[in-house]
Design a protein around this nucleic acid. Sequence first.
DNA 1: ATAAAAATTTAGGCAGGCCTAAATTTTTTT
DNA 2: AAAAAAATTTAGGCCTGCCTAAATTTTTAT
Lengths: 218, 218
Amino acid sequence: MHTFTEENYLKTIYNLAGRQEGEVSTNSLAEMTATRAASVSDMLKRLSEKQLIHYKKYQGVRLTEEGERLALKVIRRHRLWEVFLVEKLGFGWDEVHVIAEELEHVRSDELVERLDAYLGYPQFDPHGDPIPTPAGQMPATAYCKLSEVDVAERVRIMGVLEHSPEFLQHLDRMGLTLGSEVCLQEISHFDKSVQVQINQEKSLFISHEVARNLLVSR
Amino acid sequence: MHTFTEENYLKTIYNLAGRQEGEVSTNSLAEMTATRAASVSDMLKRLSEKQLIHYKKYQGVRLTEEGERLALKVIRRHRLWEVFLVEKLGFGWDEVHVIAEELEHVRSDELVERLDAYLGYPQFDPHGDPIPTPAGQMPATAYCKLSEVDVAERVRIMGVLEHSPEFLQHLDRMGLTLGSEVCLQEISHFDKSVQVQINQEKSLFISHEVARNLLVSR
DNA sequence: ATAAAAATTTAGGCAGGCCTAAATTTTTTT
DNA sequence: AAAAAAATTTAGGCCTGCCTAAATTTTTAT
């Protein structure tokens, strides 16, 4: 059996691999897991022995099929628990990540499948991230960043790239919620901030920093 | 912060202390935690340094106030999750113990209190065990064993002392559920088994072994 | 192409938790 | 009250995961 820590490394490798080309570096893992590069090296050696990653010294790391299967299992549990926390217990979407980080390591498959059914087989977690299937497939999504949208386009907010409470609370304060319809009115040549109209109503300025962390569908 | 293992020791010490007089022995802890006495000695030293137990070498062990507070917190979480698993996810009462052993270590106080509210502030878990209060008090119950009831007494099944799936499944097969009314008809002088009438209907023979693991109220 | 810088790995250590074997203390027998 | 048995603790080790410091490899800059 694999440990909590191993599960966390696999999940982190999966997430980092998703946002870049090629292999995942030791340093980026150290940063994400809040440890030192030397500790990461230790762990990579162990994960490699367990055939959960492909690892060549100094060359970065990539999940094996088995490693990816495990990573997706953990991510599935994480996202289902987040749905539970928001939908059933009334937590805010900015509060659930930390708690789900613990719940995701409860191993019972039976529990996960019953939870899924109880929640009505949700497709997305409260941040708009797709929930992997029981079979271990990550559903494809075709979102782009709000920062890549052209003037006059009408899009819908579908997710976020940044999950920190600070960012999510900022969105709350601005009245930006998943599902909002956004019509892009203008792009500032000064700071790349965008002016948008929300749900045919109020108009809003959104900083580039925020815009490139908002996922939208056309 | 304390570890999972420490939490498990505290919980186990609490449970063992409850079913006997005086201090809890190293050996009994080793048996309950499925480890060796030497490992228990190690851990007792550490728990003692952290002021969670009173410990004199060779003299057994007792929880400090702080230790008991923590133990009750873990037990509260365990029992609330068991209610969730049975009431919301439809698990059988014989299936939930193992899963709750993992869920009980998720530390968020906010989570526990919201779960409690979501479940409607239950007083007892699916096995009839009382759920400690948020303040850390164990509610008193006045149950006795079915094996201590006299002939012609009419009692109600309120809980179990043994929590193994095997025992609980045995009760299921016999049709004995919490809340059943039991009228004691006869006690065998041969093997101490008892003949009872359930809910004014069918008559049943219950072995002494089963009877002394059933808690009833008069 | 080399030197400097950055990234990564190795070496050596530490704490948590477990183990076996041996030593010690307590309890039970006789 | 001694001797035997049982319970407990200590000693010495192992594995996981982390650390710092030093060595090595790769990348970048000149």
